[in-house]
Write a protein that binds this DNA or RNA. Sequence first.
DNA 1: CGGACAAGCTGA
DNA 2: CAGCTTGTCCGG
Length: 633
Amino acid sequence: MAARPPRDQGSFDFGAPDRPDPVGPEVAPGAEADPSSSTAEEPEAAWAAPIVPLGRVVRVRPDEPGLDKLFDYAVPAALDDQVRVGSVVRIALAGRRVGGWVVADDVEPPHGVELQPLAKVTGWGPPPELLELADWAAWRWAGRPASVLRTATAGHAVRTLPRAPRPSVPPPAPVAPDEVHDLAAEALAAGVATVRLPPAADPYPVLVAAAALGPVLVVGPVASTVRRLGLRLRRAGQSVALMPDDWATARAGASSVFGTRAAAWAPVPRPAAIVVLDEHDESLQQEQAPTWHARDVLVERARRLGVPCVMVSPTPSLEALELGPLLTPSRAAERAGWPLVEAVDRRGAPPGEGLFSERLVLALRSDARVVCILNRKGRSRLTSCANCNEVATCERCQAAVVQAEEGALACLRCGTVRPVVCTHCGATRMKNLRAGVSRVREELEALAREPVAELTADSDLGAGGPGTRIVVGTEAALHQLDAADVVAFLDLDQELLAPRYRAAEEALGLLVRAARLVGGRTGGGRLLLQTRQPRHEVVQAAVMADPARVATAEADRRRELAYPPATAMAVVSGPSAPAWLEAFGTPSGVEVLGPADGRWLLRAPDHDTLCAAMATVARPPGRVRVEVDPLRL
DNA sequence: CGGACAAGCTGA
DNA sequence: CAGCTTGTCCGG
């Protein structure tokens, strides 16, 4: 099949409301926002120079996230040809030198202010459209543009750009007749759309379909995966920049750009299409405030460029489903891309045997590589006195203490460590109410009659020896391993019942990770889910290879409970949060809940309402954390 | 943000 | 009233 011709850009109807651009960043008094073309770079005619008393003046955003203001500087003649919108410069500000970005060119400086010259041009910075996108993101996630611009800027000075590759390279040939390629083509034509591909499916055909339009921007949560896909496209003859190393190549344009979360801010000037891989993955959201999400940044970026944005996920988030149509492969194809999932009903299990069903023991005693997942570290997450049955708690803060190692009880909240003595009756014997990974490892060894390795976020593979057939670990094991025959969730209920509003989506996300370790059912991949809720929609979704079961149930629940994405939320915390809320007041349309544990919860019908209200608040002195779209409440 | 400077507190 | 802390303002 011949490659699709590149389509006209700017021809999509995105249906998204044309949000009035938020009131731009505060502009210093007397200085109107950029009136003239920002990229005009024609040198002034020689005869004109003496007539204009003041030379070129640019507006600069200092790289000081605490300082949300723009300042104007004169461009020294010697630097004239190095300065453009986006350039990284150094400026004198209040007697010291700081970095900054040129955000507007040929500006009218305020009256009565003696301009300083730019101290230095450090090098290339983000293209102009990212400066505007940064302003938008600062509004959308109630943060500072400078903190976002840092993400969009190379980690080192970029003095010169490599020559952009010839744009005439033909797009890669699509891989045979391919269902995924066709889905992708349909999604690309839709503007913003989601393609649901099962865990074992190869997303490469999506990239090929997108690359037929021109250079693409591809962002996914896992560095190794994105990198591998980028290298494949490169091998197909395309020019590919891998972020963050190839920042300058990306900035030069005409290359496809691949990277993880931060690559949402890759400086590629005009991607022809944008692809977000594993859109549901939480690591696409920045943890520090502003807590921007790569998916939402990229959808907005595509909307502004008028190019398509395709999201790909085995289990699309409710957020993605609201953004555009969902395209799914045939039932047969989707089923083939999920492993065989076996729900092991533990309702009838005797208490002592809780974590080790017959099905699990069978798997352990086969020759399969088995990964057991239990999201509890240490020996025990809940300990009680063997004598009086009182639950062991911290004497200082009352939180449950854990048996970290022989002979000590440690509080995870305040860090207090005390000997194994019951504060209630003084007995020195404790029993585990819920075994942790270390304890379970010992029991698995006894069951399997061979060594079992332990794998958690702090213990890496070395601990149990690389050749071990059986591994037990927390969910970190799913990140660190790359293949297995069986993944067994020893206590899936812990995920299903987690007190977080996104628990169901998160649990299904874990099952997707596990599914990728074992591969599709045709290759013999198997998941074992030990649960007391075999009818739970997450379990059913995995068994039936039908993630819509979770999405549908969850969407209703969120609407009923007024949780995102049915609403827009933010959590405000930190020492100066009270002052922030004082200034925030009670704007109409925004519900203010709290404080609970020093945190306030803001809820509005949509982001426009929420963000517009938050944008009016001047930051009080001191530390405030505003987390928009919190993953946990 | 971080420096400058002004207004308040302490000690003899 | 010097010497120091705390607070508020401002930067081009």
